[in-house]
């Protein structure tokens, strides 16, 4: 399978209905005491409309325009794949480059607000090779944020190990962001701040310059139509609400199903 991420970029076409066609059925009264088929089938016009809803998903169109740009030497659309039968003495399974993650707590507005992003997206943004060339900006409007919050994103009770390593990533990301951006404030909100500070007590000086808050994020709302994100989090038994220009959620990685299957088949751990 040639890999494709789940979140596909889709253009809304406006010439077809957005909801799917409903199957017409005979009424409940007509069903009692007999076995007449319940669903009566799409009328022709409905079927054609429904078929037109198909996006005809396709990546390369095979139009050959790239080839026409003087690339006959380097491009060939019809190089066949290769099948190899190989024998090994040992296998090491690693998690690969999927970067899939467990669902994010819906209240945090990921997928609703374009300025709520994952730690993985933030990581790419911080890279000089990344989409913004290392510039920290809000994907909502391209502006440089003044206040960023980095929070724990999963909705379930978590294992300590995950909370810890994701906080380390969050801290590292804020170190890089602060280094690259002027007049930036970063708040890190995590339920394991205390133990984190204890473990990294030798780096106390570096950590003290970061705003680390022991707490759990509760919900996110947009203030007005174009306003900042308003984040509510619980800390010390109380709820607090603050405004931010960018929210980064720390994700819990999810191993891809094919790697899980491989691990199960060979009865071997993932490294």
């Amino acid at each position: 399978m040639i890999y494709e991420k789940e979140k596909r970029y889709i253009i809304p076409f406006t010439d077809v209905p957005s909801s799917r066609a409903e199957m017409p059925e005979i009424s409940v009264d007509e069903r009692r005491g007999n076995f007449t088929e319940v669903e009566t089938g799409f009328p022709e016009a409905v079927a054609v409309q429904e078929a037109k809803r198909c996006l005809s998903c396709r990546r390369c169109l095979g139009c050959g325009l790239c080839l026409a740009e003087d690339n006959e030497d380097s491009i060939d659309f019809n190089i066949p794949g290769e099948e190899l039968n190989l024998e090994f003495d040992e296998v090491i399974i690693t998690k690969g480059q999927d970067n899939a993650f467990h669902p994010i707590k819906p209240e945090l507005g990921f997928d609703v607000y374009a300025d709520v992003i994952t730690d993985l997206q933030f990581e790419r943004m911080l890279s000089p090779n990344g989409p913004t060339g290392g510039l920290v900006v809000s994907p909502l409007n391209g502006e440089i944020p003044g206040r960023i919050a980095i929070v724990q994103g999963s909705s379930n009770e978590e294992d300590e190990k995950h909370l810890f390593s994701s906080l380390v990533l969050g801290v590292n990301e804020s170190i890089l962001a602060l280094d690259k951006t002027q007049d930036l404030e970063v708040a890190l909100i995590s339920p394991v701040c205390q133990s984190f500070k204890e473990k990294f007590s030798s780096d106390a000086e570096q950590i003290s310059s970061l705003g680390i808050i022991e707490g759990i994020p509760e919900s996110v709302e947009r203030k007005g139509e174009e306003g900042p994100l308003s984040l509510t989090y619980s800390t010390g038994g109380q709820n607090k609400t603050e405004d931010f220009d960018l929210l980064v959620v720390l994700t819990k990685e999810k191993i891809s199903p094919e790697i899980m299957e491989l691990s199960r088949k060979l009865d071997q751990e993932i490294q």
Binding site: I2, D73, S74, I75, D76, F77, I79, P80, G81, E82, E83, L84, N85, L86, E87, F88, D89, E90, V91, L266
Partner: peptide, 13 residues
């Protein structure tokens, strides 16, 4: 360990 691997071709050299 016996494997069958499919290597998709990169279409650009």
């Amino acid at each position: 360990i016996q494997t069958r691997i499919v290597k998709h071709s990169l279409l650009v050299d």
